[in-house]
Design a protein around this nucleic acid. Structure first.
Lengths: 196, 196
DNA sequence: GGGAAGTTGTCTCATTTGAGACAAGGAGCG
DNA sequence: CGCTCCTTGTCTCAAATGAGACAACTTCCC
């Protein structure tokens, strides 16, 4: 992975594939795409694709994993940040990768990827939940009472929020959508007693 | 040439270089660009550049030559076309390659390329002149009395027209600018007695 | 003038890629 | 069912590229 990252040819191949993928999803949707179409648009050989990826899903997974890495690095930069800032940065990240997320989550996107995005958000939400709980009132045995129910519903809500935001040409800035989502999340956490 | 054209890697390398070149000209101008900058942006190695091109001028020459080839193919498609159609197609071609020509001819472009463009247009104008003369009144010894003076001035005028058109966001369609240029050219040809 | 830094143009060798063929397995259709 | 067409996933060998070093040259700045 670190070996690959510094190899110009592999990075270039991946970049060309990523751009071709986004273009083709916008034109024809993800599910019906063939590996041959993607590689033709990307101007690389089909053999080179299969040397680097198992299938088109593996390509998306790598692209998504790298985007998440960028996000986590951005989130980790100032260590002493307050929780709300996290979600602003999250939506800023979404805005940075707008074309990618709109393609994958939108009408022509992939149910499979939507599911993947939800799973990632569930993890992020559980981390956030622990963090917020820690800020509010540190407990001795906080590690066991975090269950999946509320994060699962919130993740679905967030994916919808992202999709709506991107498909409506981002009607307001990242801060605004982040704050609205935080308000909703806080309400739900409070309501269900999971929060504080 | 025909060998190279069907080689995916060479075509891809050229395409990446062309896009990087246009981007960098827009940002920093042509003259001060280094080969290293272009190859870095294009995500290819400097060694690969020098394997395929002598220097950055050779790169521009190839890009321009291929654009001209596309134009000539477009011009040649219907053989029984009237002269005016030629210039409409010419400006349509300019519009197709807008970014390239704007970068190379505009403020951040290259005097060297402007000169090259003029030379190409002089050739095209002389062909057009012979063609028009042939349509109007075929002569026995038409090949000797075509001199360079009027084509040279007209070419300079055309380059200015193209540059103006592109730098003003193409205020009217190809047909309109073509017809205006034809009107001017006809006036000059008529005035100097070179026409008919 | 002279030194430092950057650029050019060239080279070699390891690595990645392209072309093309192949079997296997759908998907659509008569 | 059987047929055709397309896609997948894998393989080999030839060809292009990447990394890195190099001398020669320019530019810039002291």
């Amino acid at each position: 992975m670190s070996q690959k990252a510094q190899n110009l040819r592999l990075r270039r191949t991946q970049k060309l594939l990523r751009e071709a993928l986004v273009e083709l999803i916008e034109e024809r949707g993800f599910e019906s795409l063939t590996v041959g179409e993607i590689t033709e648009r990307a101007m690389i050989s089909r053999a080179a694709f299969y040397r680097n990826y198992q299938d088109k899903y593996a390509l998306v997974e790598q692209i998504f994993a790298e985007a998440m890495q960028v996000l986590f690095n951005a989130l980790a930069t100032p260590a002493t940040e307050h929780p709300p800032e996290l979600w602003v940065r999250f939506f800023e990240h979404i805005a940075d990768y707008e074309r990618l997320y709109r393609a994958l989550l939108g009408r022509k996107g992939s149910p499979w990827f939507v599911q993947k995005m939800r799973a990632t958000l569930i993890d992020l939400l559980k981390q956030y939940q622990r963090l917020a709980a820690g800020y509010a009132a540190p407990r001795q045995n906080a590690s066991t009472d975090v269950d999946d129910f509320v994060p699962t519903l919130l993740a679905a809500m967030l994916v919808e929020a992202i999709t709506w935001w991107l498909e409506h040409q981002r009607p307001y800035p990242p801060e605004a959508i982040a704050n609205r989502c935080i308000a909703l999340a806080t309400a739900i956490f409070t309501e269900t007693g999971t929060w504080r």
